[in-house]
Design a protein around this nucleic acid. Structure first.
Length: 896
RNA sequence: GGGCGGUUAGCUCAGCUGGUCAGAGCGCCUCGCUUACACCGAGGAGGUCGGGGGUUCGAACCCCUCACCGCCCACCA
């Protein structure tokens, strides 16, 4: 009667297993750091990009969560003081974008609701969506400490924002002023340079005649200066025409004036080196209020800036007859009018770069307005030094350059946004125009400059760029600005993990703000992963319909399969394609593990003694057992190294190989032999089973970080069958990382030799077309006693796995025709069907192969350049190979 | 206009500081006794590591160059 307490289902059903497992983890408080830091334990704190509060899980989140969870689980198993603090980001512009669409369906708009009601509506909306993304992360198996979940709009964050901004202000890093900023006419807010995405587009370039002014102030119908533009509507705001100082064509015109069409404004013609003589006509219309270059040029020349577009990019009252028109309608109208008057000289398609709002895709408009800026140069210098001086490491290292380039060319950060959902800038204006920045929740008590009471002050209505609060995340979540126990225990953090696409948006800001606020680098390592792409290599996108929904995948094949597929075959910073085939690979692997465990559990000997037969010396460990332990020791060492190096792709390969190839394909197959052979003692049988079960336990430990559900479930089953095996911990999630083991080179070599012989025989069988069921006689030369002994020790495995019987070692007598070289000497296979193979031809091929290699090696070794300059170890190795080949050749010749 | 990455078996990708590095998974071909697993097992075919040049005793790996593909940064109207 078997003592197995639980029968595993014939097929792994993740849907039936995962939710229950997750609940057990949570009930056990497995995600929480210990109340006190374990003495002497290294710290491991991971920083995750908090997903948008209104968001739904996409494949990118799944990748991020998988990587982070794998690292966190690994470090937790190692006993490190581990923290993963979850949270969500208020994502002001993205959230407003979503809510605006929703209220539009209700017939409302931001304007119709007004700020207060809109924000109430937003909080209500957030309440509905806030938990969604967390629940979805749970389904992936993510194991952050949910008790510490934070939100970038909670009071802790709000306080951190106020304090950080106040300190920046006090340090002189903040200013408020008029500047030409990127403006989205649809979102009705400033957007930062990063949110203004440039795209190559084909537009039109028009050449327009500006007639020259005659002495009487009227335009000269016969004299003009032609300017080229891609945005004719901006001409309404022109205040000059510029040419290059050395441009002969225009030398005589500099100092004169042109008359602006429609508005009859006098435009000075001036010279400036910034003008490219080769482009267009060599003369540029200058629109300071609507173009960055022109703005800079106007400043140099003291030109006025006239804003002609309103916040929705309609022509304003300064636009004369065009007032009220949308910018593109105005463009068409102006072009028509110019064409009619004969002042449109040319019109042609033009390849150009257009800036669009990252959020909504609307063409952005440079707009002159008063904004809050953070002077980032000094902050950036420190943030750059942290990386160049090695206090923070970016992986992969090549992103160092991008980071440095960005930090070196950084512009001041426009942090104010004309949005409602977010942290309001804690600045107050007094009627005299004084500005008071305060970090008090209720605002300042009086104007900092003139002492006017708070009742006379009004707060700035702009809010902060979302990334300002995100930039404080690593410490605002730990209680900063207070020196809390959490700050002391968990800050600075260890690994900042995210996609390379937000290196500048987020990582750079965290570095700058972290250094400024806390005087320390916010994390030791920045680990950047790549993007997930669709099968053809295209970006995944809802509109393209080529997305893979991680939750559907989890429903279908389980979180473990998805996680494995996301990590295996990946390398940091490189994009990867995710395909159905890859997901299937993950699923197959979880099934494989399940079945291996099923085999182990179902074969537990009924009569296993209570005492541990492996440790009391009753039975010496068999060769396969020693081999398995050595292979596992190697895998543990490699996996540990790879996870420490954040090389998750390599780690996945390591565990996959040891589990599938070493454990399942080889060990379990030979274990069957030892567990089933009639002449084995109960103790021997038990020892073999025990080794299999222990080996499985190590495999489960190794795999748990990446495939937590199936490994945990099997761990439970293993524990129920044999509590001894999981004695140290009832839950795998909190069990220890496998201890490093000893390599056993002798066992590895011996077993590898047997495996090679088995493979050689299998090969012969296939070539000969031997039916799988047929037993074939085998003769192995085994020229020396040592080889014969080694072979004899493993004979039963060869017999079973190569289906060879009887096996004769050495000795004279008839020898079958088919021969293969093996570590033990030549191996002859006798089978009835041998005639199907041309033994002689086969032998000739093998011999030629050996001869070829021999020739190459002899030449190499004869080369004085090689033997003289190559390291001795390399030379010795090549000598050994030569000797080995010579031996094989001798075997081959001997048999003929 | 700068900068970066990629180009390795039909496909998707690993290959660390040059010396069993020519690999894995999928796909393909052949076979399938065997109660862990056909989401499987055994065996096999398939690549002059994008082209050219160089350094070296030796290069997929280092240098130069060219060709494609992709990405990032950038104020040419």
């Amino acid at each position: 009667m078997t003592t197995t307490r639980r029968e595993l289902a014939a097929r792994y059903d993740p849907a039936a297993v995962e939710p229950a497992i997750y609940e057990r983890w949570q009930a056990a408080g497995a995600f929480r750091p210990a109340p006190e830091p374990p003495p002497g334990a290294p710290r491991f704190v991971i920083i995750q990009p908090p997903p948008n509060v209104t968001g739904a899980l996409h494949i990118g989140h799944a990748l991020t969560a998988t990587i982070e969870d794998t690292l966190v689980r690994y470090h937790r198993m190692r006993g490190d003081d581990t923290l993963w603090l979850p949270g969500v980001d208020h994502a002001s512009i993205a959230a407003q974008f979503v809510l605006d669409r929703i209220i539009a369906e209700e017939g409302e708009s931001r304007a119709s609701l007004g700020r207060e009601r809109y924000l109430e509506r937003m909080w209500k909306f957030i309440e509905e969506t806030r938990d969604v993304i967390g629940r979805q992360h749970r389904r992936l198996g993510a194991s952050p400490d949910w008790d510490r979940e934070r939100f970038t709009m909670d009071e802790g964050s709000a306080r951190a924002v106020r304090v950080a901004f106040k300190r920046l202000w006090d340090a002189g890093h903040v200013y408020r002023g008029e500047a030409l900023v990127n403006w989205c006419p649809r979102c009705l807010t400033t957007i930062s340079d990063l949110e203004n995405v440039h795209r190559d587009e084909t537009g039109t370039i028009w050449t327009i005649r500006y007639h020259l002014e005659r002495p009487d102030g009227t335009p000269d119908p016969d004299a003009w200066i032609s300017v080229a533009t891609t945005r004719p509507e901006t001409l309404l705001g022109d205040t000059a025409v510029a040419v290059h100082p050395d441009d002969e064509r225009y030398r005589g015109l500099v100092g004169r004036h042109a008359i602006l069409p429609f508005l009859a404004r006098r435009l000075p013609i001036l010279a400036d080196e910034a003008v490219d003589r080769a482009f267009g006509t060599g003369a540029v219309k200058i629109t300071p209020a609507h173009d960055q270059d022109d703005y800079a040029l106007a400043k140099r020349h003291g030109l006025p800036a006239i804003t002609v577009l309103d916040e929705q990019a309609r022509v304003n009252e300064a636009g004369g007859e065009f007032a009220g028109l949308d910018r593109f309608d105005a463009r068409r109208r102006i072009v028509e009018r110019l064409r009619a008057s004969g002042d449109l000289e040319d019109e042609r398609p033009h390849e150009m770069v257009v800036g669009r709002c990252d959020r909504c895709g609307t063409v952005s408009e440079p707009r002159l307005s008063v904004q809050w800026f953070i002077r980032v140069k000094p902050l950036a210098e420190r943030a750059l030094a942290s990386v160049t001086e090695g206090r923070t490491t970016i992986l992969p290292a090549r992103f160092d350059k991008e980071y440095a380039h960005w930090m070196e060319n950084i512009h001041d950060w426009a942090v104010s946004r004309q949005l409602w959902w977010g942290h309001r800038i804690p600045a107050w204006f007094c009627p005299d125009g004084h500005v008071t920045v305060s970090d008090l929740p209720a605002g300042p008590e009086a104007c900092a400059e003139c002492g006017r009471p708070a009742s006379e002050l009004t707060q700035e209505t702009d809010i902060f760029d979302t990334w300002f609060s995100s930039g404080l995340w690593p410490f605002s979540t730990l209680g900063w600005p207070d020196e809390t126990p959490d700050m002391q225990r968990f800050y600075p953090t260890t690994v900042m993990e995210t996609g390379y696409d937000i290196l500048f948006f987020w990582v750079a800001r965290m570095m700058m703000l972290g250094l400024f606020c806390t005087d320390r680098e916010p994390f030791d390592t920045v680990y950047l992963h790549g993007m997930i792409r669709a099968d053809g290599g295209a970006k995944m996108g809802k509109t393209k319909g080529n997305t893979i929904d991680p939750l559907s995948v989890v429903d279908e094949i389980g979180a473990d399969a998805l996680r494995f597929a996301l990590v295996s075959g990946s390398s940091s910073g490189h994009d990867q394609k995710l395909t159905r085939a890859k997901l299937d690979g993950g699923r197959n692997f979880s099934t494989k593990l399940w079945n291996a465990a099923r085999f182990v559990l179902a074969n537990r000997p009924a009569d296993e003694p209570d005492a541990d037969p492996g440790s009391d010396g009753a039975v010496d460990a068999s060769l396969p057992v020693r081999w398995l332990r050595s292979r596992l020791a190697d895998a543990v060492a490699r996996a540990t190294r790879q996870l420490d190096a954040l090389d998750l792709g390599a780690y996945a390969a390591t565990v996959y190989d040891v589990a599938w190839s070493d454990y399942c394909d080889w060990f379990l197959e030979v274990a069957k032999v030892d567990m089933r052979r009639a002449d084995a003692s109960p103790a021997e049988r038990a020892a073999t089973w025990r080794a299999a079960a222990e080996g499985l336990a190590v495999v489960l430990r190794l795999l748990h970080p990446l495939m937590p559900f199936v490994t945990e479930e099997l761990w439970q089953a293993l524990g129920e069958a044999e509590p001894e095996l999981t004695r140290d911990e009832p839950l795998l999630i909190t069990a220890g990382w496998p201890a490093p083991g000893e390599r056993d080179e002798t066992a590895e070599t011996a077993f590898a030799d047997l495996a090679e012989l088995i493979r050689g025989v299998r090969n012969l069988r296939t070539e000969a077309g031997t039916p799988a069921a047929t037993w074939a006689a085998l003769v192995v030369d085994a020229p020396d006693g040592e080889a014969a002994d080694a072979l004899r020790a493993g004979l039963r495995y060869v017999e079973a796995l190569a289906r060879a019987r009887p096996i004769r070692i050495g000795g004279a007598g008839d020898r079958p025709e088919l021969v293969a070289a093996s570590p033990f000497g030549a191996a002859w296979l006798g089978i009835d069907a041998a005639g199907q193979v041309d033994a002689a031809a086969r032998r000739a091929t093998r011999l030629a192969d050996i001869e070829g290699n021999l020739e190459r090696l002899r030449r190499l070794l004869a080369d004085p350049g090689f033997s003289g300059r190559a390291p001795a170890a390399i030379v010795a190795r090549e000598r050994d190979r030569l000797a080995e080949l010579e031996e094989r050749r001798r075997q081959m010749l001997a048999e003929g």
